[in-house]
Design a protein around this nucleic acid. Structure first.
Length: 614
RNA sequence: GCCUCGGUAGCUUAGAGGUAAAGCGCGUCCUUGGUAAGGACGAGAGCCCGGGUUCAAAUCCCGGCCGAGGCUCCA
């Protein structure tokens, strides 16, 4: 809601003509003309985000108004509906409700004159012109806890348990002694609300800058990152990894638009559920939004398809570059929380709840596999409504057994969101705080809202739909990987993600020989480069160390003339004698089946520009 | 969004009303090096942006932008 306060000598209005059609114009309970002296005139625009909680908006607006009236030392208030303060209007019914309720809220405390909604009106206002006589405020539907202590009581707290693979269920806090360190940290954060690492910067933020991977860009909005070649390579490898994994599983890749028309009912409803955290804008005469996940486009595809029961489960997949969430300013942090992020997103239309449950487990297990490949430890949390838990208790036990590790169990008294059950996986960062990454959820609402149906011999049916991200957002995956490095003796990336996998350091002018070795590695799609700079050996080795190169080799007369290389293995700090062939084999095995992309930077270090780490 | 702290060379930081510093990096030269940083010289600064106070502002004040942390939040 937008409010424009004018401290006025007087305000006078007269309704002239109804605006819009139907019963838009208010006729009952408001005067058609009026005048007030020595007042604060409040031009008011109710916005779409306010519809989330009209009572909260009224309360917050009243608070602002009291504050302003107090400063201006007046008790006369004119409430004047004025659509032109925002481009994102609430529906007329909501707007009228807010105006009426605000009037009711203020009456008694103030002398209130309200001007009617939905009319073209003439008005005259005389602004006093002192420094505080024109003020504007933005009020949201967000409840401030301090102002409304009773509000926090409203949502009943969840029950928390830990379930072990053998089916044993116990209270989460009591189970802490039986689980590993990460799960303990997870319970402390989720259940006990214990803050850890207060005041410290998470290590990944400095690393992403220092290693020239990712940086901020002041010319963009907050939480929109830029990727330098080294980071871009890591990012592309991660994306390729996830794409391959999902396609292998049976996801069918698509690509869908990043912006949607809020004029479409299904879009408006789906978007409306998620409150204010969206990028919204006008384009021509349309109100648009940027997607916050790939649901919109994929649901739209499914809606337009003729889906036979034989097509189920139907898995539509997309690497959403980008999804957008306008997180609050102070919530955005490093790679952990962004406004523009990259979410691998698959939606699966299923025949019925039985198939949905089956898919949920299979997809959860696939998520756990990324844990292996990425070297990130994940702790699972199964969250569901009490109703779901009671109906599916045995099945939940099977799930935990299948996942093969203890799971945090959250039982919600009632359904708040579109899902009835979901499984999240959390990595624990260097400060003991969770980074929630993969997730799979059973959505019981969207098929109906978007008109997604499948057809069998009998007729058509709405489908339960799974939302799935096998890895979580790509940026968060990198955050988790970098956080991991902070606890290592020798911090490093896995070889398959290292921008340079092998570096050669020539002495006695053996650059050409090194170039040949680079080419031999390239034949196997392995990334090598040559530090041909005119620097001391010690200095170039220091550079290989700070560049986190997993294998580096000094190449001089001995190597060119002999048949072994002294290969420095960063992980162990050992120098091993290997033939060229052995080096190739070692690196080859190290990368294994994981993606192999070409180098993004020149072969010679002397040609590497310094990208600023910002 | 609110609160606290910060923004000085490409990077990391020192300085605190009166001519703007250092290390790293960069350039040139010397060194032709054998496993974590060889030497010399040099270039490089709208001191985040906009206002204000002052003879004088990077420095003090106000507003904004960006970053970190805290609150809230992550659908």
């Amino acid at each position: 809601m937008k409010l424009l306060f004018i401290h006025s000598d007087h305000l006078e209005f007269e309704a002239k003509q109804k605006a819009g059609g139907g019963d838009l114009a208010e006729t009952d309970g408001v005067p058609m003309e009026g005048r007030m002296e020595e007042c604060v005139t409040v031009f008011t625009t109710v916005e779409s985000g306010d519809e989330e909680d009209l009572d909260a908006v009224v309360d917050n607006a009243a608070t602002e108004l009291r504050d302003v009236a107090d400063q201006l030392n007046t008790t006369n208030v004119v409430l004047y509906p004025y659509a032109h303060l925002s481009e994102d209007l609430a529906g007329p019914d909501a707007a009228k409700t807010v105006m009426r309720n605000l009037e009711a809220e203020l009456t008694g405390e103030f002398d209130v004159l309200r001007s009617p909604f939905g009319w073209y009106k003439s008005f005259e206002v005389s602004c006093k012109g002192h420094p505080l006589s024109e003020l504007s405020r933005h009020v949201s539907a967000h409840r401030d806890e301090e102002k409304d202590p009773e509000e926090t009581e409203e949502r009943e707290p969840s029950d928390w348990h830990v379930m072990t693979p053998d089916g044993d269920l116990q209270g989460a806090v009591g189970a802490k002694s039986d689980v590993n360190e990460d799960m303990q940290a997870f319970i402390e954060d989720e259940v006990e609300g214990i803050e850890k690492g207060a005041g410290d910067e998470p290590p990944h933020i400095e690393l992403m800058k220092e290693k020239s991977l990712v940086g901020y860009d002041e010319l963009s909005d907050v939480g929109n990152l830029r990727w330098y070649p080294r980071g871009k390579l890591v990012r592309d490898c991660l994306m390729e990894y996830v794409n391959d994994l999902v396609v292998e599983y049976g996801g069918m890749p698509v690509e869908t638009p990043i912006m949607y028309d809020l004029g479409a009912r299904a879009i408006d409803e789906h978007a409306g559920k998620f409150g204010e955290r969206q990028y919204r804008f006008e384009s021509g005469d349309r109100r648009m939004m940027l997607r916050f996940a790939a649901c919109f486009g994929q649901f739209s595809i499914m809606r337009d398809m003729y889906i036979s029961e034989n097509d189920l489960p139907l898995r539509v997949y997309e690497m959403s570059t980008y999804s957008f969430r306008r997180e609050q300013r102070g919530e955005v942090a490093g790679l952990k929380r962004l406004r523009a992020f990259t979410m691998p997103d698959m939606h699966t239309a299923t025949e019925d709840m039985a198939q949905a449950r089956e898919e949920l487990v299979a997809q959860a297990k696939l998520a756990l596999q990324t844990s292996e490949d990425l070297g990130i430890n994940y702790e699972p949390a199964i969250r569901m409504t009490r109703e779901f838990f009671e109906e599916n208790r045995e099945w939940v036990q099977e799930v935990v057994d299948d996942l093969g590790k203890p799971a945090l169990i959250e039982v919600l008294p009632e359904r708040h969101h579109y899902w009835s059950a979901k499984i999240d996986f959390a990595a624990i960062d260097g400060l003991g705080r969770p980074i929630e990454n993969p997730t799979v959820q059973i959505d019981v609402e969207s098929a109906e809202r978007f008109g997604i149906e499948y057809h069998d011999g009998e007729g058509s049916h709405h489908t339960p739909i799974l939302h799935y991200s096998p890895s979580g957002g790509i940026e968060r995956v990198l955050a988790a990987i970098l956080e991991n490095t902070a606890t290592m003796d020798t911090p490093r990336l896995p070889t398959w993600l290292s921008p340079t996998q092998v570096r050669f350091i020539p002495v006695q002018d053996h650059v050409e020989y090194c170039d040949e070795l680079v080419d031999r590695l390239a034949e196997r799609n392995l990334r090598a480069d040559v530090d041909d700079r005119d620097e001391s050996v010690g200095k170039r080795i220091a550079r290989a160390e700070t560049d986190w190169v997993p294998y580096y080799v000094v190449v001089g007369d001995r190597e060119v003339e002999g048949d072994t290389l002294g290969v420095n293995v960063r992980e162990t700090g050992e120098e091993l004698d290997m033939s060229v062939e052995e080096l190739l084999e070692t690196v080859d095995e190290d990368v294994g089946e994981l993606p192999r992309k070409r180098r993004y930077l020149p072969k010679h270090l002397s040609k590497h520009p310094n990208f600023t780490g910002n």
